[in-house]
Computed example of a mutant assay.
Amino acid sequence: MQTIRLTRWSEFVDHADAMEGWAFRGHVSAQWPLVPSLTRRLQQFSPDPRLWPLREARAMRVFRRKAHIYLQDRSALGDDLRSLALMQHHGAATRLLDFTKSPFVAAFFALESATRDVAVFALNTPALWNRAPDFDPSLTRSQIDPRVPGNFDRYFAGNTLPLLWFGEPSEMDSRLVAQSGLFVVPGVLDLPLDDILDGYGGSEGLLTKFVLPLEMRHDAMRALYRMNVTYATLFPDLDGLARSVSYELESIWERLVEDYERAHPAPPGT
């Protein structure tokens, strides 16, 4: 994995423009490893990796048995990837890693609540499209596609194959559409994504990590606001609108300051 530390927002924009077709993911800490939420949860509460496939299978089974109560359309529960996407959408820990086709959406998620240096990971999906891991050249993206019935159990659920798949479910929800989102699905949970990619060989770089310093946040968030990249647009519901107000609290535009000063002039002699 190549790591590039940036100093200005314009540098990120220039790099992003050169990465046509790549996928991106933002982290609010540059120190976080590139692992899914399920890995972090299992490492904390189930330290024996031999039990992880059983734990994941049970979580999916429990969700599928009960989620139908809240769904008008239950068809997603018969599809492994759509079930995982539904779980992820509503806050469950899953093996899915959220990525986006937009570098600016990824930067927003990294920077919006940042209190330290952040990271945006860029995955070279064009180079990976027909690539397979070195240990088995037959395991291409199309071969292991978890949208195909039986493939999730065959290639992912056993937690033994260091490979990955990327793409969208057969049907996407409104948030995934709004965020230009896609998922990366790792075949093992106990390795970060960069270690899995080391097994894919080839001369092209497959993963780049951009470190964005906290000092960049002001310029970046202002640029993203002008691009209409906000919680209100990325989460097109009342929750997203309410979360978007947080940035309005910190953004004091120059004209607003001038209007306020005209309406509330300082007392003479101050």
Rank of each mutant, 00 (worst) to 15 (best):
G240K: 01
E254A: 15
L81D: 00
L139N: 02
G201K: 02
A92V: 05
L161V: 11
L42Q: 03
S83K: 02
A220H: 03
S246H: 09
F24C: 00
T39M: 05
D173G: 08
Y200D: 01
Q179Y: 03
V35Y: 02
R255N: 13
A85L: 05
E250D: 14
L212G: 07
A223G: 07
W129E: 14
D259H: 12
T270D: 15
R217A: 07
R95N: 09
L212V: 10
R175S: 00
D237C: 01
T270M: 13
A114K: 04
L139D: 03
L71S: 04
Y155P: 04
V28H: 13
Q88K: 11
H15T: 08
R95W: 05
A67H: 02
D239P: 05
A57I: 09
A220T: 01
A263G: 11
L71Y: 06
L81H: 04
R50K: 13
Q44H: 14
R82E: 07
L97N: 03
F156H: 04
A122E: 10
E112S: 13
L241Q: 07
W22T: 04
F135G: 06
R226E: 10
A92M: 09
Q88G: 13
L51F: 11
L189G: 02
Y200Q: 03
L77G: 08
M221N: 00
G150Y: 01
P133M: 05
S75Q: 12
A263P: 06
F104K: 06
R82V: 07
R8L: 12
A220Y: 02
L238W: 07
T230N: 04
L97E: 08
L189W: 06
K209P: 08
Y155S: 03
G202C: 05
A114Q: 04
W253R: 15
L234W: 01
V245F: 07
V229S: 01
Y247F: 13
L241F: 13
T270F: 14
L86C: 05
S29F: 03
F99S: 03
H27R: 04
R116G: 15
E261H: 12
L84M: 11
R41T: 13
A223F: 09
A16W: 01
L256R: 14
R61K: 14
R61I: 12
R64P: 12
L193T: 09
A67G: 10
F135W: 02
A85E: 02
Y260I: 04
L182R: 01
V188G: 04
A157L: 10
L6P: 03
H89Q: 08
D17A: 15
D259R: 14
G78Q: 09
P236S: 00
P33K: 01
S75N: 10
M227L: 13
E261G: 12
L176W: 00
E258F: 12
R5H: 11
V211L: 10
D195H: 15
V229T: 06
S180D: 07
K209Y: 07
Y225E: 14
L191C: 05
R175F: 00
S29R: 01
A223T: 06
D73Q: 11
L207A: 02
M60R: 14
I4M: 10
A266F: 13
L206Q: 00
L54P: 14
I4N: 08
W129N: 15
P36E: 00
D259S: 09
D237N: 01
W9G: 00
T270G: 15
S138V: 09
R65T: 14
V118R: 04
T140G: 00
R116S: 15
T7M: 15
L54G: 14
L71G: 08
L212W: 08
D117R: 03
E11F: 07
D14N: 12
